[in-house]
Simulated scan of single mutants.
Amino acid sequence: MMIKLTEGKNNNQNRFTQKSLDRLEFIPGIWVNGKSYWLQHNTEKVINVEALVLKVKQDHIHSKIHFFNLYVSNHSNQTKEMKILAQHHYTNVSQEHFTFISPADNRIFHLANNNVFLVNGQCDGVGIQECTIQPFWRIYIDQIWSSLRNGSLIYQPMAKGPASSIFTMKISVGPRETKKSSIWSISALNKDEVISLDQALLKNTLAFPFEK
């Protein structure tokens, strides 16, 4: 089955929400030197203490795919070892919402109102490295970490009701360098379709022009 990954127009690139079936909100962030920073309601964040600038841009690829590029610029004179953070949660909070990590697929799934959402990402050609499912209230008080100092997440594979999925990807950014990572969510009515779209996306050289 051939799946097209270019269609339609994007009318609002700064809204980090998915509306085609229901809404899945994306909140990007970064972990560096034992601290986490989130881009809530913003497309750009300056972290002065680390001499870093984070920018996020949404690119339109397909009506069922919400695709974001996160750019990390290092304005210091030292290489920075960091982790990209990608948080997703369903905006219409309901006990019917179920979120889980699939180790076999190495992907995260959100299920709500008969819809399936797949969450994935890639950085330097490498995908998700750590992930967890956590209640909302734990995220911004740094209760999602088994070790905040090392940037290690608590592993919790599933949750029902109001919860966020969070995954990390390692990134190394040299002095005066900018690097890109990509994060996306896919919505459909069944798991087979979201996986097929995800596989097609990973093979799409337009989405990842610099990846081999």
Rank of each mutant, 00 (worst) to 15 (best):
T91N: 05
Q40C: 07
E25G: 01
I30T: 02
A51I: 03
W31E: 04
N33S: 05
A86H: 08
T91F: 10
K83D: 13
L70D: 03
N42G: 02
L39P: 00
I61L: 15
K35C: 02
L54C: 07
Y71F: 13
V32A: 12
K45V: 13
H75A: 14
E81V: 02
V93G: 00
I65E: 09
E50D: 05
H88I: 02
L85P: 00
E25K: 04
V93Y: 12
Y71C: 04
I65Y: 09
F26E: 04
V72N: 05
Q87D: 07
V46K: 12
I27Y: 07
K83N: 10
S94Y: 03
K80M: 11
I61P: 00
N92D: 10
N74T: 06
I27F: 07
K35V: 02
P28H: 09
H62R: 11
V32T: 04
Q40T: 09
V53Y: 14
W31Q: 03
H60V: 06
E44D: 08
N92P: 00
G29T: 03
H62F: 15
I27A: 05
E81R: 03
T43Y: 12
E81A: 06
S63E: 15
N69P: 00
L70F: 12
S36T: 08
S36G: 02
Q58F: 08
E50F: 07
E50K: 03
L39D: 05
K64N: 15
V49A: 11
L52M: 06
W38I: 03
A86F: 04
L70V: 13
T91S: 08
V46D: 13
G29A: 08
N69E: 15
T91Y: 11
N69L: 12
A86E: 06
V56K: 05
L70K: 02
V56D: 08
S63W: 11
V93M: 10
F68M: 10
H62N: 14
L24C: 02
S94L: 04
E50I: 06
H60E: 11
N77M: 12
I84R: 07
L24W: 09
N42H: 11
G34E: 02
W31R: 05
